[in-house]
Amino acid sequence: DVEPGKFYKGVVTRIEKYGAFINLNEQVRGLLRPRDMISLRLENLNVGDEIIVQAIDVRPEKREIDFKYIP
């Protein structure tokens, strides 16, 4: 289970104008929005990159997770 405030290693699987989709595993995916990136820009991410993200909002009923990147 993903818990708000905890850090997780994930893989960038898709990049859109509104953010990057990060997979923690095959069943768990969330969104990293540009506003939640500190010292990292969306255009510097590539599909396949491994990054450490912090879960900031977890909505299991909608199967949605918002992430934050903190270097």
Rank of each mutant, 00 (worst) to 15 (best):
D1F: 15
D1T: 14
D1L: 14
D1H: 15
V2E: 02
E3Q: 15
P4N: 10
G5H: 07
G5C: 08
G5Q: 06
K6W: 08
F7H: 07
F7G: 03
Y8E: 00
Y8I: 02
K9L: 12
G10N: 00
V11H: 10
T13C: 07
T13Y: 08
R14V: 08
I15H: 01
E16F: 12
E16Q: 08
K17V: 14
K17F: 13
K17H: 14
Y18A: 05
Y18C: 05
Y18G: 04
G19S: 02
G19I: 03
G19E: 01
G19C: 03
G19H: 04
A20M: 03
A20K: 00
F21C: 05
I22W: 02
I22C: 01
I22A: 00
N23R: 11
L24G: 01
E26C: 10
E26Q: 14
Q27G: 12
Q27N: 14
V28Q: 10
R29H: 11
G30Y: 03
L31S: 02
L32D: 01
R33C: 03
R33L: 05
P34H: 07
P34A: 12
R35E: 11
R35Q: 12
R35G: 11
D36N: 14
D36E: 06
M37I: 06
I38V: 13
S39N: 15
L40Y: 04
L40D: 05
R41M: 12
R41S: 14
R41V: 12
L42P: 06
L42G: 03
L42H: 04
L45K: 01
N46H: 15
V47T: 06
G48V: 01
G48I: 01
D49M: 13
D49F: 06
I52K: 07
I52Q: 06
I52C: 11
I52D: 05
V53K: 00
V53D: 00
V53R: 00
Q54D: 01
I56M: 13
I56N: 06
D57R: 15
D57S: 15
V58F: 08
V58M: 06
R59W: 06
P60Y: 09
P60T: 10
E61W: 05
E61T: 11
K62Q: 12
R63L: 13
R63N: 14
E64G: 07
E64L: 14
E64Y: 13
I65N: 02
I65V: 11
I65H: 04
D66C: 06
D66V: 08
F67Y: 02
K68R: 15
P71F: 05
P71W: 06
